[in-house]
Amino acid sequence: MKILVCVTSVPDTTTKITFTDNNTRFNKTGVQFITGPYDDYALARAVELKEKPGVTVTVLNVGTADSEPVIRKCLAIGADDAIRVDAEPTDAFFVAEQIAAIAKENNYDLILMGRESIDYNGGQVHGIVGELLGMPSISPVMQLDIDGSTAKLTREIEGGKQALEAQLPLILGCQEPIAEWKIPNMRGIMTARTKPLKVIPPAGNDTLTKVVGYELPPPRGSVKMIPAEEAETLIQLLRTEAKVI
């Protein structure tokens, strides 16, 4: 079984977001980049599935050379090889076309990725890739087992969850608790240095959206503290002042 795991390189979840160049560029100064947390769950499950013989895991990133530390970490966690499409991942359709082009050449049985990237939060790429490949897509997947050519999985729905069965090949957007995040060990880190990482140019340049500027949300006003002994007045304030109840 061939598994492709698509990963994003995104600012650490504790990052204070700022912009430069008159609010037209994300300010990378001092920002730590990590594997997208949802992508990390997808990778962890793929590496667990690799415990069975005959399973290979390829990592794919659409990104600039800045993504390479994240890709190497994925290899250290247990992926066999990696592909980087050398382009800025600015548009979901563009990224999906890159993934679809690589998938068409390689016939993966399973394409996994996070339910969404935590920078643009679109949650669209798995569905668009599915459409481009004529393959079913399911998201957000919380549990995944493979039995021959059948995938048994659980996805979250509003207010609950749903168990599904589907035939491979499939594209899945993943989230917790599909697997525990994995931390690379020393042996993994050493072997990752020599695992193949192929860099290829993008296929086409079809972008359908373009960011023209950024802004930060206005700061919240200062907090109004209510003494514990007068807690009940909160309900009056919510009704008469905030007007939300």
């Binding site: 643009y120 373009k210 960011v211 950024y214």
Partner: peptide, 9 residues
Amino acid sequence: KAFAETELT
């Protein structure tokens, strides 16, 4: 944490 002004082309 932020907003993006996005043009749909």
